[in-house]
């Protein structure tokens, strides 16, 4: 064993955790470790040390808040997908949670980890965009609330300061009567890294699309809202014409890449097809 072990802290409260961070900036904040541990010991974090967030009860679990829910950042995907409140009111998030890795991964991986890790392929992220979630960060300057759309800044880069802890994710109440949908397109049926993801929150009033929020993942360095596609269909009846307009606008708005998982051309085409399908679903919800 290496003679100089990095310090490791397992705080029980947010305040204690913030104290460690203030004293030792650069501590690596860890939760489910399902990404950090990949590649094992050859990628050990720097000797700055580790801050384990999973023992902080106040940032774990799901609570009612102002018509919506507040989800602790250290809440696992298993807890999310099993939560009756999440399933009833945020079914798109429950769907996404159920499609992240296998059971064993869902038992460990956390919603906060998915956000802080900031991968373009994070499965929960388009859903959070479409739900207009906000993120609460806690640090030496107190707490601040950041819209999720402003949190994820770039490829594996977030607005979280080095001395802050991602504490909660706030899910505001969705619009009354909203249809939520999440579609993940991966290379196989399960345990897959996404090629394309689309999340939608939408409402129909008087036979026309009223509210429409569309977000996509794995088609850009960060998950993106698709305002052009939303505008293209808003105000129209939720029929084929609206769906095709939204799909085309979605595909036109992104410039996906070729990588080891898929091709740019396929991603753009599938994005168009899936947006079209989800918008059509507003007209005939399942």
């Amino acid at each position: 064993m290496s003679p100089s072990l990095p310090p490791a802290f397992s705080p029980r409260s947010l305040a204690e955790a913030c104290g460690y961070l203030a004293a030792e900036p650069g501590l690596v904040r860890v939760a489910g470790c399902t990404d950090l541990m990949v590649a094992g010991q050859d990628r050990r974090p720097p000797a700055a040390g580790l801050l384990d967030l999973t023992g902080i009860a106040e940032i774990r679990g799901i609570q009612e808040a102002a018509g919506g829910l507040t989800v602790g950042a250290a809440t696992t995907f298993s807890e999310l997908r099993r939560s009756p409140a999440v399933r009833a009111r945020f079914p798109a998030l429950a769907d996404a949670a159920a499609q992240i890795g296998g059971w064993q991964i869902q038992n460990r991986a956390t919603l906060g980890g998915n956000l802080a890790n900031a991968s373009p392929a994070g499965d929960s992220l388009p859903v959070l965009l479409a739900l207009e979630a906000t993120v609460v960060a806690a640090g030496p300057r107190g707490q601040r609330e950041i819209p999720y759309g402003e949190f994820h800044l770039g490829y594996r880069r977030t607005a979280l300061a080095p001395d802050e802890i991602l504490a909660w994710i706030r899910l505001p109440a969705p619009p009354a009567g909203a249809v939520q949908a999440f579609r993940k397109v991966g290379p196989r049926a399960a345990q897959a890294i996404s090629k394309v993801m689309v999340a939608m929150v939408g409402t129909v009033a008087d036979g026309r699309i009223a509210e429409l929020r569309l977000a996509a993942g794995s088609v850009a360095p960060i998950p993106v809202r698709l305002p052009g596609a939303e505008a293209a269909a808003r105000g129209l009846p939720p029929d084929r014409q609206a769906a095709e307009r939204a799909g085309r606008a979605a595909a036109a708005a992104v410039t996906p890449i070729d990588d080891v998982r898929s091709t740019a051309a396929y991603r753009a085409w599938v994005l168009e097809r899936v947006v079209r399908r989800l918008v059509l679903g507003l007209g005939s919800p399942p």
Binding site: C33, M37, L50, D52, T54, Q104, R108
Partner: peptide
């Protein structure tokens, strides 16, 4: 791990 299936290659001793 406490009765829940997990992948031991991804669980650090820390936890």
């Amino acid at each position: 791990l406490d009765g829940e299936p997990v992948l031991s290659c991804l669980v650090p001793l820390l936890q």
